[in-house]
Every structure is written in C-alpha cells, then in structure tokens.
Simulated scan of single mutants.
Amino acid sequence: MQQDPSWSSQAWGSGGENVSPPAPQPAPQPAPQAAPQPTTGQPAASQPQHQPAQAAQQPAQHYGAPASCPPQPVFAAPQPACAPAPQPAKKRGWIVALVAVVLAFLLIGGAMASCASVFSTAGSLAAVSSSGVYGDTIAVIDIDGTIQYDGSACSPEGLKTLLDQASDDPDIKGLVLRVNSGGGTATAGEEMAEYVKDFDKPVVVSSASMNASAAYEISSQADFIYTAKTTAIGSIGTALEVTDLSGLLEKLGISIDVIASADSKDSSYGYRPLSEEEQAYYQNMVDAINGTFIANVAEGRGMAEDEVRKLATGLTFTGMEAVENGLADDIGTREDAIAKAAELAGISDYDVYDMGESSYDLSGLLGLLSSEQSQDNHPLNAKEWDLHANTLS
C-alpha cells in the first residue's frame, strides 16, 4: 500500500491496524509553549510532534503597546510587552554640587571653630606674652642709621614703641641695643636717651663700627656698654650749621630782599653773613644744648660733669681708649652683650628675640620726606626749622 507522502512517520495501534494521526491542535494563548496533549495509551515516543499553527506566523497584537513597538518574529522566544522607549537619565550634577557645598560649609565651620579656639587661647596668653615669645628671653633692638624723626628704631617714636613692648612682656627679661650710628638730631637723641634711662629692665649696649654723638648719648643710659677695639665711639659735642651764600649770590648778580619782623629773623637763611651778636647768640645755644648732652652722659655713666667735659672734644675714641677713659665698660661682641644682659637679669637659660631692624637707606629717605613735609607745613620759618634740625649731636 502506497503511503501518503504528507506523513513522515506511521503510528500503529496494538492490533497492527493503521491509526490515523490526531488532528493538530491550535497553540493555546497566551502561554509561550504548547500545553501537553492527552495521551491515547501509546508510548510518548509514538506521539506525533505538533508543529506551530500557521496562524502564529502573523504578528502578535498587543493592546495598549506603543505604536512604535516592533513586531515579534515568528519562532522567537516569547518577549514581554514592549516597554516605553528609555528616557535620558536625569542629570545628577546638582546633587554633587550640593554635597560639595555642604562639605565646604562643614570644613569652614570646623576651621572657624578651630580659629576661635586658637584666638581664645591667644587671648588668654596675651597677659603672659605680647611679643610672641615664651620663656625667659633677651630682646635685641638695632639702632642702625641716623638719629632723627623717621619712625624707625632710630627715632624717639620708633624706639619708644619697641621699649614699651619689651617692658610689657613678662618673658623679656633684658634688652640689648645694637648701635651702629654716627649720631643725628640733638633733640631726638635727648628724647631717646630719656626713654632708655626710664626702661625698667637691664639694658646692655653692643657697639658696632660707630657709636658717636647722639647715638652715644643714648648708649650712655645703658647699664653696660660693650665696644669693639676699633669702634669709633664718643664724639661728645654739638654743632649748628649756618651757610653763608651771600658771596656766591653777589657773583651771580642775585639780590634778595628779605622783609622780616626782626633783624635776626633771616640770620639762618644764608643770604647774608651773621653779625657778631648773632654769632654769640647761636654759640650760647650750642653750649646749652651741649651742656644737656654732657649732663646726660655724666648721669648715665656715673661720672662727674667736669670729667665728661674734658672728653667732650667732639672727637671719637677707639674702643680701647673708651674703656680706659670710662666711656665704655669692656671690649666685647654682640653675643657678649646678650650674655651680659642675661647675667644682669639673673637668668641662665634664655632665648634671643630680635625686635626688628632699621634700614639706613630707608630711614634716610623717610627723613628727607619728613623734612620736606615739615618745611611745607611751616613756609614762613623754613630756614629756622632747618637750623633747628641741623643742630647735631
């Protein structure tokens, strides 16, 4: 018997008769795989394999799915309903920025709390140390330059500020003045000498290359003076400068008429020579100023005024001569002066604190500016101001 070509296999019953294959069943929906069919008692191996229904080749319809959802392939594994197109992820930068800001505020707050603690501690220590030094200390002040009114350590204002700071600091037990100056304005030297004399702690002077005139007047108020062997020290004396330009003006054909309230008002202008009376007047002024200088040195050095007057030649002495004539105490260095200050203060273990240096060039420039400003402020007696300023010690 010719077999039907549409059959790829035969199924036989128990009696040998030809049993027609069961009709194909439609695939249940919406299960992704065909449900098992009930058996007819034959072995499972003899059951025909069911092919998917032709209707499954049509695209599946999904109600409610987006129109852009693509059709499913015929024999593909079942797919879930098409999800909406993914949306771009929301930016999280603002979250990072917010976290950074919060952290910054926390750090600033912590720093402020720490600073407050430091300031509180510093405030409690202010009564202990106003100079930033702790423990027994010897302070050093450099007087390096012309004695004048320039605000530096070479001026009354500058030196007074440093001396007050050293006096108020309980940790500073003694002071060294490192002097390198040829002198300057007599009045400035007088004021500075008074400030050193009134200082309430031991003061030792360390003389550098020069310690003369007004600078020596200041040094004479210290408790002890060291000098190098080759230091130019002393020069006790006073000078007043009056320039006579009348001869030069005559040669140049320049005539200057001065209208003054008194005959001697223009005596220091330099337009004419001094009269004998004016010369005598200015000499008396210089002698009086020099008398103050001599008295200060005598008091500071513990000498008689007559003894100091003999040394007031206006000339300097070498360091070795100054030790012999009593203007200095010993030959020594800056370190010797520091050790001596510690000895006078009664301390053996100490630190050294430099309270600042004055610049010679800067002080000179400031002095010139100060001079010009003062003349501008006093135009009617500018020459008289020059005369007073140039009264040197």
Rank of each mutant, 00 (worst) to 15 (best):
Q33R: 13
Q37R: 13
E299C: 04
G364F: 03
A304F: 08
I331F: 02
Q29D: 11
M355P: 04
E194K: 15
Q165N: 05
N377F: 09
Q49K: 15
G183T: 01
L248D: 11
L380W: 14
D329W: 08
K201Q: 14
S68Y: 15
S209A: 13
G247C: 02
D386Y: 00
L362E: 14
V196L: 13
T318P: 01
G300M: 04
D150W: 04
H378W: 14
L98H: 14
I147N: 05
Q2V: 11
L240K: 05
T243C: 01
N325V: 02
A27D: 14
S167I: 01
L369G: 01
S213R: 11
E335R: 12
E278P: 01
P73C: 06
E194L: 13
S235F: 09
A116W: 14
D200A: 09
P70E: 12
S261C: 05
D150L: 05
T146S: 11
Q10C: 09
M303K: 08
M1V: 13
S20C: 00
L159H: 02
P66N: 11
S348G: 14
P88Y: 05
V101M: 11
P273R: 11
G356Y: 08
Q51K: 09
S220I: 06
G158I: 09
Q72I: 05
T238C: 05
T187Q: 05
D361N: 14
A232K: 09
L274S: 08
M210R: 12
P32C: 02
L252E: 13
S206G: 05
Q49W: 13
A166C: 09
G247H: 10
I254M: 15
D287I: 07
I233F: 03
S131G: 00
P38V: 10
S130A: 10
L392E: 12
A126V: 10
Q49M: 15
T391R: 14
F224M: 01
A239C: 04
N377S: 15
L162I: 04
I141W: 04
K383N: 15
V323F: 11
S46P: 00
E278H: 03
Q57T: 09
P66A: 13
P21A: 12
T146Q: 09
E307S: 13
G234Q: 01
S68W: 13
A104Q: 08
Q375W: 15
A328R: 07
V352T: 06
L315T: 07
A166I: 02
I147P: 00
L248I: 10
I256G: 03
G16A: 01
R92M: 03
L274F: 01
E372V: 07
I138Q: 07
I289P: 01
A280P: 01
L344Y: 06
G135K: 05
